[in-house]
Amino acid sequence: MSELQRRLVHASGGLVPLGYLAGLVPWAAVAGLFVVSAVVATVLETLRLGVGLDWAIYDRLTREYEQDNPAGYALYTYSMSAVALVFAPPVAASGMLMLAVGDPISGLLGSADVGEIKGVTTLVAMFGVCLALAVGTFVAEGFDPSTTVVAAGLAGAAGATVADGVKPVVAGYVVDDNLSIPPVACGAMWVVLWLLR
């Protein structure tokens, strides 16, 4: 049950960029909400790791390798905040949805131990979902589904899939995909859009 709870909490973050795409909230509110969330997460993680705050919810929503490292929910808010502040809304919203929607779907289809690569079927599914999310986001933002949009979507989906596919360990720290998916995907899309425009 805890795995399903984690996935549902993960996916709930997608409601924020979807609210923007539906015209319900301005982009400044999206960015502001994630920045405030990142500040709150920093305080909670400081209390958890530094003071020893041990709420029961941490047992259900954190993984074993997160017990002595920043938890995935904090990394999630950091990466969402970063892309919201750095990239234009169509690019940032695409990357956000790749993390909020693509990653939980990928996780339900298959997982891999730290340092290992996910299975091919899982990676193909992640790529397909992320490509659809990117192209759909650009179209919702008023872009024609042109070669440029598809190329940007392909680049973003590839970046998100690579970031999702393996959790490398650097200096004893697990590079969680909650931290890596949005910036890698958005960076790849930005490069393609810059090159093709």
Score class of each variant (00 low, 15 high):
A151K: 11
G142S: 04
A160E: 03
P90K: 04
K167H: 12
T121S: 10
A88N: 09
G102N: 04
L85F: 05
V120H: 12
A100H: 06
E116V: 12
V91G: 05
A163M: 08
L97E: 00
A84V: 01
S111D: 14
N69I: 08
D68K: 15
A82D: 00
F143N: 10
V91W: 06
C130V: 10
V114K: 15
E141Q: 13
G72H: 10
V150G: 13
P145V: 14
L85H: 06
M98N: 02
V135C: 09
V124N: 08
G110A: 02
L97F: 00
T122P: 02
G128M: 09
Q67V: 14
A88T: 15
L109C: 11
V86R: 07
A93P: 01
A163G: 07
D103C: 07
G136P: 00
S146D: 14
L123R: 10
A88M: 09
P104T: 12
A155T: 06
V120T: 13
G156F: 07
Y76E: 02
A158D: 10
T77R: 06
G159A: 08
V135D: 00
V166E: 11
K118Q: 05
S106N: 04
V129K: 02
L75S: 08
F87E: 01
G128N: 04
F138I: 07
T161R: 00
S81W: 00
G115F: 09
P89L: 08
A157D: 10
S146L: 10
P145Q: 08
D113G: 15
P145R: 12
S111R: 15
T77E: 02
M126P: 00
C130P: 12
A100Q: 01
A163Y: 04
G136E: 04
D144N: 14
P90D: 03
G119H: 13
P168V: 13
A93H: 06
V114H: 10
Y65Q: 12
G95L: 07
V114G: 06
A158E: 11
V114A: 11
L75T: 01
T161M: 07
A140D: 08
G110M: 03
V101T: 02
S146N: 11
P145W: 13
M98P: 03
K118I: 03
G159Y: 03
S146R: 14
G156W: 07
G128H: 04
A160F: 09
E66F: 11
M80A: 11
P70W: 12
L75P: 02
M80P: 00
S111T: 13
L85M: 14
V129G: 04
A152V: 11
G72N: 09
L154K: 09
A151I: 13
A93C: 01
A93M: 08
P89A: 04
E116R: 05
A92W: 05
S146C: 11
S79F: 04
A71N: 13
V162I: 15
D164G: 12
I105K: 08
A74C: 09
A151T: 14
P104F: 01
G115N: 12
L85W: 12
G110T: 01
